[in-house]
Design a protein around this nucleic acid. Structure first.
Lengths: 231, 231
DNA sequence: CTCCTAATGTACGAACCGGTCCGTTCAGCC
DNA sequence: GGCTGAACGGACCGGTTCGTACATTAGGAG
């Protein structure tokens, strides 16, 4: 009846080491788990928490709804897993940032532009954050994995500003978190409010022709702010 | 049907008689309509579209669910009415803005701070916009009342920038819509992302002690940007 | 006063949806 | 080769939720 197992010969992964679970098995818990999370990330980001349907998520995986409850306990557990996964991915990509070799002004611009790129490359993440805010961040606040929090980009920013201040290039009355907020606000707004912005002003903030312009703008903006009254 | 009840305004404060009679089943279509919209605005802003419950909205009014379907046709019609009402209120308050008598730099700062105040005073509006964006602004786009769109603040901004350019105070390569986006991004982010921001950095962007600081910051930021390279 | 209609209330249905019960299959171990 | 438990599937259940049929009242028109 069910032709689920059609290539079961491929299981020839003879390594009987108990080290790490090999991939590509007919029965593979990790694979099933990952697939559910991947589908659920799209569904939650697309429909919101209340709008997403467990049945729909299950239907879009190669497994069944029963597995969602088997692995995640329920809709809320799945959402939490999705949220934590999204934050972890962003955090990982942020840690690749290396601007120690650049002069403060250029480092700051690079940081802003990299943040800009991150938000462009991860639209699901921006939407999930918006959704989480609608729910007053109650899931994120009660998240057990504390390491999800704290953006590495903030530490990088702090060091850039220290260097800028020490060189007399930056204002000395600025908080790194304030500057981070400016950059985030710009990049998040572009992703999170693009649809009402388009409806109101007929300008698509994700239009490829606008991309370089906006990317340069956040750099100019933040540099102008931290160097205001200096030069 | 227009001059039926004049003694009972929507927000009537007829406090001279007995404040509210226990059995006061007065028939007033406008009042019922307005009360439903008011309650629904809070519910949709609080729970999102899918999360809001028609039964719950009805229970929080002094009328029944039947009236929601009588006046608005259904959940979606009610949501649309809520959205249009919220935009109209914001638009009305924006039109009170008068900065013609101020010098360009001060006018720009005043505009930014007024926008800041608007967003602080209308948290429901900010949340509704976020929710509408989650739904790709499909309701706003298909809204029949086009006059809801187009922020008056943008026209005011355009004139300020013209004056600033003419006086040689502002850069001449800036678009008013870009500057509007910067101001909006900052003010919207503060309201829309305050919860995840608090969870991540333990800073409440609506803390009263932070208010004046942030209010000054958006002014400084936008002024620094439009005057960069001048003076 | 009577009638007509807008306005309102009550009860209910049907689909939906999160969650669960119970049975089945596969893979590793002795 | 048989056993065991993890991984999995499908049907189903009970509460929820949007929407509606139908009854009823208020209040102005004639």
């Amino acid at each position: 009846m069910t032709t689920r197992v059609d290539t079961n010969d491929v299981e020839g992964d003879q390594g009987m080491t108990a080290e790490s679970a090999p991939k590509e098995r007919v029965r593979d818990a990790e694979r099933t788990r990952a697939e559910i999370i991947e589908v659920a990330t799209h569904e939650f980001a697309d429909q919101g928490y209340a709008g997403a349907r467990v049945d729909e998520i299950a239907a879009k995986t190669r497994t069944t709804k029963r597995m969602i409850y088997y692995y995640f306990g329920g809709k809320e557990g799945l959402y939490l897993a999705v949220l934590e996964g999204a934050y972890q991915r962003i955090r990982a990509s942020e840690q690749e940032l290396d601007v120690e070799h650049l002069a403060p002004v250029e480092a700051l611009r690079r940081l802003a532009e990299t943040t800009f790129d991150h938000h462009e490359q991860h639209p699901d993440f921006v939407r999930l954050v918006a959704i989480e805010n609608i729910h007053y961040a109650k899931h994120l606040s009660s998240s057990s994995s504390r390491e999800v929090l704290a953006a590495p980009a903030l530490e990088v920013l702090s060091r850039i500003m220290e260097r800028g201040r020490a060189a007399g290039l930056f204002r000395d009355d600025l908080d790194a978190l304030d500057v981070h907020m400016i950059i985030s606000a710009f990049c998040v707004f572009r992703g999170a409010n693009r649809y009402t912005f388009k409806a109101m002003f007929d300008r698509d903030l994700f239009d490829p022709h606008l991309r370089d312009h906006l990317r340069a703008m956040i750099g100019d903006l933040v540099v102008a702010h931290v160097t205001a009254g200096r030069r």
